[in-house]
């Protein structure tokens, strides 16, 4: 029992280590964190590589209608599509994708 005492006594008089996420003191993620996925509609050539490598089938490429459907709630944020895309059209930033009350899907219209 006494072996725990110094720890709790020290904790009692120091700042808590938890944070009021997501309201206050948000720590910046480390560089290289695999967060949200974005598609660059200008660069994409609708080759469909990303859809093929995606282990979660979160990307659907519709080359006829020239659009990409992305399901963020299927995505496992592994980043394979980012590595695969030869056009560099897919990017991943360093922030968590926010929670949501419904399962949304994102639609990208490709211009080229």
């Amino acid at each position: 029992m006494p072996w725990m005492f110094p720890t709790i006594w020290k904790n009692l008089f120091s700042r808590p280590v938890t944070r009021r996420y997501p309201f206050k003191d948000i720590r910046e993620p480390f560089p290289g964190y695999r967060g949200k996925i974005y598609f660059d509609t200008n660069k994409c050539d609708l080759c469909g590589d990303c859809a093929r490598v995606c282990p979660a089938e979160a990307i659907e490429v519709d080359s006829e209608n020239k659009q990409i459907k992305y399901y963020p709630f299927r995505c496992i944020y592994c980043g394979t599509c980012v590595e695969t895309c030869l056009q560099g059209a897919i990017t991943q930033d360093e922030h968590y994708s926010p929670p949501n009350t419904e399962k949304i899907e994102e639609l990208y219209k490709i211009e080229a």
Binding site: M4, T7, I8, V17, P29, F30, G32, Y33, R34, I76, Y77, C78, G79
Partner: peptide, 28 residues
């Protein structure tokens, strides 16, 4: 309190994971 202390230590390991692999738990 011990539970919290151990998980606090675990947080340091998860930080290393996030730093090196990009995710805290599923490193991929």
């Amino acid at each position: 309190s011990l539970f919290m202390q151990i998980w606090r230590a675990r947080e340091m390991i998860l930080d290393i994971s996030e730093m090196t692999a990009g995710h805290r738990i599923i490193q991929s």
